[in-house]
Design a protein around this nucleic acid. Structure first.
Length: 548
RNA sequence: GGCCUGUUGGUGAAGUGGCUUAACACAUCGCCCUCUCAAGGCGACAUUCACGGAUUCGAAUUCCGUACAGGCUACCA
């Protein structure tokens, strides 16, 4: 039996050989320095904030070099798939302005290097595995999972290094005859790589993020094809990224220790080894120790969390970019007129340890981002959020569109705008009192100001003798001062501070009475603007309500 | 157990042998401004870079060891 026939017995019914695929997927025609990256999730439908982070880096790296960013679905482990998982991932990423040049799309594959779903590439992997078998660089293994785990236990007991290597690689030297016999007996098998590495020798490479690296060579005969015929991650990664001509493999740093394994596959197959960039994880403090943000334990792990909270997608991305390259913030400060997209991301500036996820910082970025938006943009985003999460409020916003925009315009669109909206789920809490439909105050925050008679007096005199809806802001404020002084309050704070005993109070007390009467709250944005928006009739009604 | 990586204030970090009395930002606190709030202005916040040694005229920066944390060590990715 020739080696070809032998390989054919192990991996039957394969139409094409490796050569065929080599010709099918030629080198990409890109300009010098263009980076080809990919995002390669399992179709779980869940986008982790850490995954968004690496996807963002991959996407930006490709874009800033006029390269290619593609989506590949890694579904070789069927347990990880859910229905419609791929579409959910695509949608979630699109929200954050992460789009693919190539790969799986909602309408099917796009691009010349497909299929982009690993389960559809089974034959391709097998063709290459076959090539390795023919060249005696891979072999079938009949060990059961129980046997392997038993061996690991023995190794562990004897304090030996764990794994399928050296004398533990029991099937490595099976004779062809024996293999044929066991296959014909219907025994299940996997295909393992026949490693040529030496654990005592060092393998050196340069990681784009971590720099010069030195790891032991791989001497484990790790599986490349599972008993279901699908490849393992290690093998699929090598085949796919070679055939799809990925230049930079950007992934989580849990993969860092397996670079010798991966490189070995590339080398044994005669492929050019790609560059690796291992991104350190986003961490969370938990009981005094740091751990990766976890899908199960931390709500903020899911990208949908930010959507629900109403943190603008752009703010999340701005935050992730400052995590990626901390000089980004300074760049933004110095290039206020430029599009943040012009910032050039640099692998070398990425942190090599893990980064604590700083929610406060995110909120700060979000506040600043929202404060710079136009009133109408804020309105649109607030409405969009409310339509999904707070429909009653959305109805109000729609019904009173112009009015709402004016509310959002208070102290906005100026050099130093208000920064009180951090996320859109909080908007109703902040402006409910501007809507009669929502204005049902449970308590008036009178604080400790004056007795009811004094309140009544202030309000009545103000409304009847001073208030004029056509006053501009200065006139309005001067009138407030006049009223204060007429009633024995200090019209300006300096006078009051110098001689507090000469006055019943100061202008703060006067405006506070009016503010609380109109809004029930002691803390609001600019009173003048609120009064202007409320209008005379509603003001009168609210004063009546307050005095009841 | 083995292998690898990391460790600069509450947080993210700048920093690659003297320009560091450790930048900048977030958080916190104080003062000022102010009709309240939100802002804004000013200031405080690591004598020290996990610890111990070594090299050097000089170290956060180089080397060695220790500690702690994390990752990998699956027919999971």
């Amino acid at each position: 039996m020739t080696r070809e026939e032998y390989a054919d017995l192990l991996l039957p019914n394969i139409k094409h050989d490796a050569e065929y695929y080599e010709n099918l997927y030629p080198e990409r025609d890109l300009k010098e320095g263009a980076i080809v990256t990919r995002y390669a999730p399992s179709p779980t439908g869940f986008v982790h904030i850490g995954a968004l982070y690496t996807a963002f880096i991959s996407s930006k790296m490709a874009n800033q070099t006029d390269g290619v960013f593609f989506l590949r679905i890694e579904d070789t482990d069927q347990k990880r798939s859910i229905d419609d998982g791929v579409n959910k991932i695509i949608e979630d990423l699109a929200k954050f302005d992460i789009n693919f040049d190539e790969g799986v799309t909602k309408e099917g594959d796009k691009g010349n290097y497909g299929p982009y779903t690993q389960s559809e590439r089974k034959e391709i992997y097998q063709a290459y595995a076959k090539k390795l078998i023919i060249e005696d660089k891979a072999y079938p293994c009949f060990c059961t999972e129980e046997e392997s785990s038993q061996d690991r236990e023995i190794q562990s007991k004897n304090k030996e290094r764990l794994g399928y290597y050296g004398k533990w690689a029991k099937c490595r030297n099976l004779s062809i005859e024996e293999v044929i016999q066991r296959v014909n007996n219907g025994e299940k098998y996997i295909i393992r790589l026949k490693s040529t590495g030496d654990f005592n020798k060092k393998f050196t490479f340069k990681d784009c993020v971590k720099g010069k690296s030195e790891l032991p060579e791989n001497d484990e005969d790790f599986p490349i094809i599972k008993s279901d015929g699908l490849p393992t991650y290690h093998f699929a990664h090598a085949i796919d990224d070679h055939l799809m001509h990925t230049t930079h493999v950007i992934r989580g740093d849990e993969w860092y220790p397996s670079v010798p394994k991966h490189t070995q596959v590339f080398v044994m197959l005669g492929f050019k080894v790609p560059k690796y960039a291992h991104i350190s994880p986003l961490l969370k403090e938990d009981n005094g120790t740091r751990r990766k943000i976890s899908k199960r334990k931390d709500p903020e792990a899911a990208v949908s969390f930010y959507h629900e909270k109403g943190i603008p997608n752009e703010a999340v991305m701005l935050y992730l970019e400052t995590v990626a390259n901390s000089n980004f913030e300074m760049w933004l400060e110095q290039n206020k007129d430029k599009d943040p997209k012009e910032f050039v991301l640099d692998f070398k500036k990425m942190s090599t340890g893990g980064t604590m996820f700083d929610y406060d910082k995110l909120i700060n970025i979000s506040k600043n981002y929202i404060s710079k938006l136009k009133a109408e943009e804020v309105y649109n985003l607030a409405l969009e959020h409310a339509q999904t999460y707070n429909q009653d409020f959305a109805e109000l916003l729609k019904q009173y569109k112009d009015y709402s925009i004016q509310i959002f315009n208070i102290e906005r669109e100026q050099k130093k705008p208000r920064k009180d909206i951090a996320y859109f789920s909080d908007v109703q809490n902040q402006i409910w009192y501007m809507f009669d439909e929502l204005f049902k105050p449970e308590n008036y925050e009178w604080q400790n100001i004056k007795d009811k008679k004094e309140i009544e007096l202030i309000l009545n005199i103000y409304l009847n003798e001073y208030y004029d809806s056509s006053d501009d802001k200065d006139t309005w404020f001067n009138k407030m001062k006049e009223l204060a002084e007429k009633l024995g309050y200090a019209g300006n704070m300096k006078d009051y501070k110098e001689n507090p005993d000469n006055y019943k109070g100061n202008i703060t007390d006067i405006s506070m009475v009016i503010r609380v009467a109109l809004t029930s709250k002691s803390m609001t944005p600019d009173l003048y603007d609120i009064m202007r928006l409320l209008g005379t009739d509603r003001m009168k009604k609210r004063v009546e309500m307050a005095l009841q």
